[in-house]
Computed example of a mutant assay.
Amino acid sequence: MTTLRAALVLGFLAAVGPFAIDMYLPGLPVIGADLGASVAEVQMTLTFYFVAFGLSQLFWGPLSDRFGRKPPIYVGLGIFALASAGCAMAPDVGTLTAFRALQGIGAAVVMVTPRAIIRDLHTGPEATRLMALVMLVISVSPMLAPLAGAGLMALGGWRVMFWALAGAVALSLTLTALALPETLPAERRVPIRLRTMVAGARILMSDATFMGLTFIGAFGFASFFVFIASASYVYTEQFGLSPVGFSLAFAVNALGFFGMSQLAAPITERFGLVPVIRAAVIGFAAFGCALTALVVAGAGTLPVIMAMLFCGNAFLGLVVPTTMVAALDPHGEIAGLASSLGGTLQMVTGGVILTLAGPFFDGTALPMVAAIAACGLLALVLALTVLPRIARARAMAV
């Protein structure tokens, strides 16, 4: 399987979850109005999706270690399709929230398995390069999904978006069946034993490096969750953008993240993993804090917010793939469990941050950028604590 082919197939599969988020972002205010729900209630459809998406990775990872990488994909995508149909027919926000959680359970499988497949195929810089290519394919989601959602909403309302997601599963299943080889041979599969899983989880959770890197990425993801949940209200209500205008603004902000992620592999090869992560986290935190200061000072115009978020997300695009790869590298024998545990911790952290910040969201930019800055500062504190330990360990190993 060539690197390009692997990136295209894995990227398309991994984009299912983000697409399910990004496509319906332009419709959040419309969904709230149609179902008679408040901003907080509509945002809970995102929170429940994130939490279910995160927690369910705990069992998809071990299942992929036991049965191979492909069978769980078939099951998870089937769940996702049924849940999408349920969302399309939801009569109230509570039902929509429940089906969104079920959607998250199904979508989680195509977050866990591509990471584990990458670890099956490569380690080190090669894994970082493939991870970056996968993220390049995923980058289509924040650029095209909101526009697709706005177009579908204009044609037939917000429910059509979920029917479209259900239909897209057919293409994902076809790709899995025809273009994705099984990368975990039978002799390397691990039986599902609760004792083994607990032991593996204990190893991972007692590994300060694994946990530190995972949570650096988690606070980065959390900042993106805050942006996703708030941007449609800020851009449409405070700045008066249309759903299409919001979609374009959202794409510009996301472009910084995914564009810079493509430079992660060559930059880490040249400068080293630890220096790159350190510099990227510092840059991410600095832009978040600077943007918050500008908004407080009354200088938070739409161009300023978009430009600063673009730069901050660019640094974040270096943080996420490097921390993912560095966290998984020492744990190849339990890559599925490590991927699922790491993904769970990151998604649940994002859901918790979003829940804590939710009561402060009022449709203006300040709560959004302040929460993003807080995530950057938390990631920075962790990086300054964990990265020196990694550097010392690598120096001793040489």
Rank of each mutant, 00 (worst) to 15 (best):
V244C: 03
V244L: 13
G245F: 08
F246S: 01
S247R: 01
A249D: 07
A249G: 10
A249E: 06
F250Y: 13
A251H: 03
A251F: 07
V252K: 00
N253G: 13
N253W: 06
N253H: 01
N253R: 00
G256V: 05
F257Q: 10
F258W: 09
F258D: 03
G259Q: 03
M260S: 08
M260T: 11
M260W: 03
M260C: 11
S261T: 11
S261A: 13
Q262R: 02
A265E: 03
A265N: 02
P266V: 07
P266G: 08
I267Q: 06
I267C: 06
T268M: 07
T268Q: 06
E269I: 05
E269N: 12
E269W: 11
R270L: 09
F271V: 11
G272Y: 11
G272M: 08
L273K: 04
L273S: 08
L273C: 03
L273Q: 12
V274Q: 06
P275G: 09
V276E: 09
V276C: 12
V276R: 01
I277Q: 07
R278L: 15
A279H: 08
A279Y: 14
A280W: 09
V281W: 12
V281F: 11
I282S: 05
G283E: 06
G283T: 11
F284K: 00
A285K: 02
A285H: 04
A285D: 10
A286N: 09
A286E: 09
F287Q: 07
F287V: 15
C289L: 14
A290K: 01
A290T: 13
A290I: 11
T292A: 15
T292D: 10
A293V: 15
L294I: 15
L294V: 15
V295F: 14
V295C: 11
V296T: 14
V296C: 06
V296N: 01
V296A: 10
A299L: 14
G300F: 06
T301R: 06
T301P: 06
P303K: 09
P303T: 15
P303H: 10
I305G: 03
I305P: 03
I305W: 04
I305E: 05
M306S: 10
A307G: 14
A307S: 14
M308L: 14
M308N: 08
L309N: 04
L309S: 04
L309Y: 02
F310E: 02
F310L: 10
C311S: 12
G312E: 06
G312K: 01
N313C: 13
N313E: 12
A314L: 07
A314Y: 02
G317M: 00
G317L: 02
